[in-house]
Amino acid sequence: MLGGVHPPVEVNVSLSLEGRGAVVGGFSVYADSVRISGFLIQGAAYGVYVQGRYNEISNCTIFNNSYGIKIQGNGNVVRDNKIFKNHHYALGLRYSFQGSMVRNAIYWNQWGIYLEHSEDNSVQHNVLRHHAQGIRIQGGSGNLIAHNHVANNSEYGIKLCCSSRDNIIHFNNFAGNRRHADAASAYENCWDRDRRGNYWENRSSSTAYVIDDENVDRHPADAPYPVPLFSPRLYVLRPPENQIISGSVIVRGVSEQEGTVEVRVDNGTWQRAVGFLTWQYLLDTTGLDNGPHRLSLRCGPTQTDYYFQVQNEAASGFAVLLPLVVFAVLAIARRLGAGQQKKI
């Protein structure tokens, strides 16, 4: 499946799908060993819905859905994705075991990662920021939460509840959250290992970080761990590249980089697009020559180019002559009026 815009896709057999920038209105997977990679996924109830085992979702950009990814099944892998601006959670596992969620950039959703009655999953090397709750474990056990950067969440960096127990939570950064951690009915969780715990920004104690009597990081780190790095991209969603356009056209796109998107036509001046993460720009082609043109885009250090063709219809011969005819008629009328005045 290459390029273009596609309706929702349902998968019922084991196969591999590579998008290479194709836009899809959601995937529903009811099979095992399905590979989905390289898609922009938007506008669905669930960006990706999985009921199956050993499936993999990788290198996708998943945004503007009600839910980003929902998984029910064992051994599934979610890696190297950008998941943002979904209305509820970005990535949710329900009654799922031995899954892996690695190297995802997850930001500006309602919740980040939500583990519900799920066990023995690995959540590592992710960035989770700008949610209400970065990570939520609800009735889960045996999960490994490590090497994540959890920042700027408005309620909690991580919340455990509902008899969550025996989870290992260490080597993470917690910074800029309203509350870094909360544990309600959560027992026997490990917050440090081999005398190495988590980094808790602005902790008051130099010895231990106490969440409650049952949940204590006894060896908190004095400095942050390295933050996983991601390479953001800029996309134009429509019109499709190299399409022939005319008049004024709204160009719509998505930026994986937070910040202002700027655009310029050919070698013109930079102008601001409208929007945050998803953006739009009113492109007026009436002053451009017919033929190929370039729209350059930038957001922070990220830049890309988009190419399009202009084909505006030339004014008809009548339209060109009309002003001359009107001018001639008015001139004749003025002369006739002057002649009438002389006779009087």
Rank of each mutant, 00 (worst) to 15 (best):
G3T: 01
G3Q: 06
G4S: 12
V9S: 01
E10Y: 03
G19W: 05
G21P: 02
V29T: 03
V34R: 00
G38N: 08
F39N: 01
I41G: 11
A44L: 11
A44V: 08
A44E: 10
Y49T: 01
Y49V: 03
Q51R: 12
Q51S: 13
Y54R: 12
N55W: 10
E56V: 06
T61L: 07
F63R: 00
G68K: 12
K70Q: 13
N76E: 03
V77N: 06
K85A: 03
G92A: 11
N104M: 04
H117S: 13
N121G: 04
V127A: 11
Y156P: 02
G157W: 01
N167A: 02
N172D: 05
F174R: 00
G176P: 05
E188I: 00
R193L: 02
R196A: 00
R196C: 01
S206I: 12
D213T: 06
A221E: 15
D222G: 15
Y225H: 13
Y235S: 00
L237H: 07
Q243I: 06
S248M: 15
R252H: 03
Q257G: 04
G259Y: 11
D266N: 13
W270Q: 09
G275W: 00
L277G: 00
T278L: 01
T302I: 13
T304W: 09
Y306D: 06
Y307P: 09
F308A: 14
N312C: 14
G317W: 15
A333T: 15
R335N: 04
L336T: 10
K343P: 04
K343N: 13
